[in-house]
Simulated assay, not measured.
Amino acid sequence: MNWLSKGIVSTVLSDLASGRRSPTHEALDELPDSKVVEHIRGVLVAAGALPPRDEQMVRLERHVKDLVASHSTPEGRQILHRYATWHLIRRLRRRSRGNDITHTQLNVVRQHLRAAVYLLDWLTDQDLTLASCRQSDLERWMTRDETRLRREAGHFVRWALTQKIARDLSFPAVKWNGPSQAMDDDARWAIARRLLHDDTIRTEDRLAGLLLLLYAQWPAAISRLTTDHLEETDQTVRIASATSRSLCPDPSPSWP
């Protein structure tokens, strides 16, 4: 009752009940962004009064719009819009395959776009553009103590080179294949079956993969296992770690 009596809550609910504000996501989007409005939205979705939508994606699109608009030059804003819309968000939608994106995925895209903004802002301060930037300029930016998100900026430079926005630049970076999401159960079981039965894969790789997929063991912990960690009794085989003993299932053709 205390929550319902708060100014913005009672105002929004009264407007919705009276018809002064339509019960749609777009109408709620017109209100100042706040936890109260998001809670009201969540209640309306749970009650079936509003259709569900990917709130993380909506939040990301707003952030992209604000971040692109923050750059000082029209050329820079155009480049950032292309990078965000046709590279980062397009890859994210393709990877999510229609599922809601996660908060981690949202943050990854934010970091990559923010890195592009940092680099473009610095180039503008130096009276440079991506087209006029040379390797010596780029290395000068990379070696600054205050430079942030160097790795993410490398992905932006690589994209700019493929789009012919920049030229003759080299930026050491690991190729990024876009935001990823948690593996679903069907994919996990499919990989586990392959590791169990595909004898074209090295035995040690199959074992390491199964320990990771089925027992959630860290690769660092798997790499330290030796035959001394195996405990064999009359009917069972167990793998002993520092904190537990895992029972190895009996190899059976009926295993999923």
Rank of each mutant, 00 (worst) to 15 (best):
M57I: 10
R77N: 09
P23F: 01
E55L: 06
I222M: 09
S246Y: 09
A182D: 05
R95G: 02
G19R: 11
K175E: 14
A49S: 02
D29F: 04
P23Y: 00
D198M: 02
D29N: 09
R167G: 08
A131C: 07
R202C: 05
R150D: 00
W86V: 13
I8S: 11
L130W: 01
T200R: 02
G98R: 02
G48H: 03
R188D: 13
A216K: 06
S10N: 02
R91P: 04
H71Q: 14
K35H: 02
W255S: 06
T243H: 05
V174M: 11
G76D: 13
R59A: 04
K6F: 03
H155N: 09
L207Q: 00
W159A: 08
V37C: 04
D33R: 03
L106H: 12
Q105H: 05
V64D: 07
I101M: 05
P179E: 00
R151V: 15
L212H: 03
D234I: 15
V45D: 06
A192R: 02
L195M: 04
R151H: 13
P219L: 12
K35D: 00
R206V: 11
R59W: 08
L16Q: 00
H63I: 06
P179K: 00
R194K: 12
G178W: 01
P253Q: 05
D234L: 14
L119H: 00
T227A: 14
R90C: 12
K65I: 06
R140E: 08
E146F: 12
R150K: 08
H112P: 05
S241F: 11
L230D: 12
H71A: 15
R206I: 09
R97C: 14
G48Y: 09
T200H: 06
D54V: 13
A216I: 13
D127P: 05
L123F: 05
R224M: 14
P219F: 09
T233G: 05
